[in-house]
Simulated scan of single mutants.
Amino acid sequence: MRVVLTGGGTGGHIYPALAVGKFLKAEHPATELLYIGGRRGMESKIVPQHGIVFHELDITGFRRSLSWENVRTVFRFWQGVRNSKQMLRSFRPDAVVGTGGYVCGPVVYAASRLGIPTLIHEQNVVPGLTNKFLSRYVDAVAVSFRESLPFFSKVPDAVYAGNPCASAVIGADAKRGFSSMGLSPGTPFVLTVGGSGGARAINEAAIGMVPMLSKLPDVHLVFVTGERYHEETLSRIRSLATEAAGRVHVVPYVHNMPEVLAAASLVVSRAGASLIAEFTSIGMPSILVPSPNVTNNHQEPNARSLADAGAAVMILEKDLTGESLFASVAAIMSDRARRASMSEEARRLGMPDAARTIAEQLSRIMRKGSNT
């Protein structure tokens, strides 16, 4: 089986594609993968590290205001379609899987024009512009949230599959998570993370609540700052004259996130779809602070979906302070029954077999394509 993966711009588009590819290789070791991504996107650095052949396109997204740059974007799109057709004819894939982002557009569109079976995965509750456009041409859609299905009512094969990133955290070793943070097994800790690059608003609130941790004497804080905020954050916490500072573990980045998540008692995070998939798959209670700086404010519906189910608490960034964050942390960490209830509701929403569901859907459209 030969499969093209495409999607990029952010980790939220890249890691689901990689998770699908990893599952396909595990189930069918002879599977050959090609990843087509953007020249300027994170995928150009991340994908080769996973041992997958990477081909690049020069593609940009539309600006939301009138601009001559949009004219160039249209030109790059059609140039991307032509280049994608060349790559696809050369690789001869059995199917193409797109996970969103601007680069996904020309690749999946080109595949559909060539009669190659196509599937797109939508991570967020409200679909992105690219996937809305592609839904008119693809054979199948998989969504992370049930609420997304009405947006794809005209697609022949649309399923609620969950996010394939969920499959990647199942079976993570909590003991290794504790040891990697220098903690004894069973130590209760709150994991605070603002995404791969960090989030200043979450960092500021977390710094603000450090002196209040004395009211939770047994609880530690694992504080993932992001590389660019690390030194400043570490310096500010060290300057705090408080006993609780000794229970704050400040790191720039976590390379073994599934293991650390498996060990955590509670997570404070943005509401990116891939992170939410990981939280729910292992039943992790969460405090979600959706980013107001993303397209269509898509993180807020993601967070609200979990909050409405009782699996998370949502704090809007405009309401986020050290005091408001600590109040939510303390209310959850001081109430074992509530934490257990949140965990149960999160697990109920989790889709740990998401990658398998998408792989089965992919097989279905490939069989259908071979019969036409």
Rank of each mutant, 00 (worst) to 15 (best):
K175I: 14
A327M: 12
W68L: 15
L24F: 06
R336N: 05
E227D: 09
R113K: 15
T280C: 13
A359C: 09
L129V: 12
R228S: 13
V107L: 01
H255N: 13
R348K: 14
P48L: 06
P16V: 01
E27K: 15
S265Q: 11
M284I: 07
G272A: 09
A327E: 15
A158T: 08
S324Q: 11
G283N: 08
S44N: 14
P185A: 04
T10C: 05
K215M: 03
P290G: 00
V3G: 02
E231Y: 12
L18N: 04
A307C: 07
G105H: 12
P117L: 06
I287C: 04
A174N: 07
W68E: 09
A245Y: 10
E360I: 10
G171F: 03
A340H: 13
T10R: 06
F189L: 08
V222F: 03
K45H: 14
L88W: 11
S179N: 11
G195Q: 02
I52P: 05
P150K: 01
A264L: 10
N296E: 07
N256Q: 06
F189S: 13
A199W: 08
V107W: 13
A111C: 01
M1R: 07
T130N: 03
A206T: 15
A30V: 14
A271I: 13
S135E: 06
E317P: 00
G195A: 08
A201P: 01
S269H: 13
V224H: 12
G322H: 03
S239K: 11
R339K: 15
N131S: 00
S265M: 09
F23T: 01
E278T: 04
A17K: 05
R270A: 02
Y229D: 15
S180H: 08
L275C: 09
G171W: 01
V268D: 10
